[in-house]
């Protein structure tokens, strides 16, 4: 088993800083993407459920520090979503040009759904509104747009010496 900490920690830090500093300036359809979620999905796809879940937890927690929703909410949503993607049977997801965008969209919808559901359970009523669903759907579309870049970055950092889109053994 490879020790990925030296690669994943700087990646998580970079993702959170980019999300907080850059993307508020680059809103599309009135929303920002969930970079940490997309990155967690990419890591889970390549390294499996456990590594993906920890990475999602870390990026989500870092992002939570800058939000007014409760700390731990994004961490939980990102980690669960990455765990789900990492648990998918090998071969269920075929390598393809559109795979990163598909996973970005699906991850955005699933992770966003978990975020909204747990948020409502935590007592944040506005997360149960129609507007919140609309915002999350638009954010998932943005996730799909940025996913190829994020998946490429993750591949570059984690597996520079291996072929792209290969599942972990």
């Amino acid at each position: 088993m490879r020790f990925l900490g030296p690669r994943l920690v700087p990646l998580a830090f970079t993702i959170v800083i980019t999300q907080v500093v850059l993307f508020p300036q680059l809103r599309l359809l009135g929303v920002v993407p969930d970079l940490g979620l997309v990155a967690a999905v990419a890591v889970a796809y390549r390294e499996g459920a456990v590594v993906g879940a920890w990475f999602g937890f870390a990026t989500g927690l870092g992002f939570d520090l800058f939000l007014h929703t409760p700390t731990g909410l994004s961490a939980l949503a990102y980690a669960l979503c990455a765990y789900l993607v990492g648990s998918l049977e090998r071969g269920l997801l075929r390598r393809g040009r559109w795979l990163p965008s598909f996973l970005g969209l699906a991850g955005g919808l699933v992770g966003g759904g978990i975020f909204l559901a747990v948020g409502v359970l935590a007592g944040i009523d506005e997360l149960g509104s129609v507007r919140a669903l609309s915002v999350q759907t638009r954010s998932a579309i943005y996730d799909a747009i940025v996913a190829p870049v994020v998946f490429g970055l993750v591949a570059l950092i984690l597996h520079a010496d291996e072929p792209s889109w290969k599942f972990r053994d």
């Binding site: 459920a49 879940a53 937890f57 731990g72 961490a75 669960l80 765990y83």
Partner: peptide
């Protein structure tokens, strides 16, 4: 790992609230 992450997150959410 999943249980640890879920419990940690719920604890953080509760503390923060």
């Amino acid at each position: 790992v999943l249980i640890v992450i879920v419990l940690t997150s719920i604890t953080l959410i509760t503390l923060d609230r």
